[in-house]
């Protein structure tokens, strides 16, 4: 594993549940990723514009601007072309999944999640060797 390589990767976490944001932050930081957090869609997108993360982990059901809209905006922004998008949501029907992928996501994971599964998928998306494999 290369914590060093992971250190260069920036992950944006957007969720209106503070404790979930906290859990993800600890989980990812412990693996060496850089993280920034937002608790609603609007500020999440602002951070993405300015910080240009490698990966955006988005909740869907959020007030005002939901995760799907954030994803669409990222996809419409040329200088954010390289941002990987991962939905992490409680909405679990196949219609929800299709909508998520249509909004431009690379991956769609339904809550509750398994920590290791998240780390594996994040590593895959960012092309980083996983510490657990």
């Amino acid at each position: 594993m290369t914590v060093d390589k992971a250190k260069t990767k920036k992950i944006l976490i957007v969720d209106d549940e503070p404790n979930i944001v906290l859990a993800l932050k600890y989980l990812l930081q412990d693996e060496g990723y850089q993280t920034r957090e937002a608790y609603d869609g609007q500020s999440g997108f602002s951070i993405a514009l300015e910080w240009k993360p490698d990966l955006a982990m988005l909740d869907i059901m959020m007030p005002e601007i939901d995760g799907l809209e954030v994803a669409r905006r990222i996809r419409n922004q040329t200088d954010l072309n390289n941002v990987q998008i991962l939905f992490l949501t409680a909405k679990g029907t196949s219609a929800d999944r299709i909508e998520g992928y249509q909004a431009g996501a690379e991956l769609y994971i339904v809550k509750p999640f398994d920590n290791n599964h998240i780390l594996e998928k994040v590593a895959e998306l960012l092309d980083v060797e996983n510490s657990f494999t």
Partner: peptide, 10 residues
């Protein structure tokens, strides 16, 4: 799901 996710993750 929301609290369970948090609990399970921590």
């Amino acid at each position: 799901r929301t609290p369970i996710t948090t609990i399970s993750s921590f």
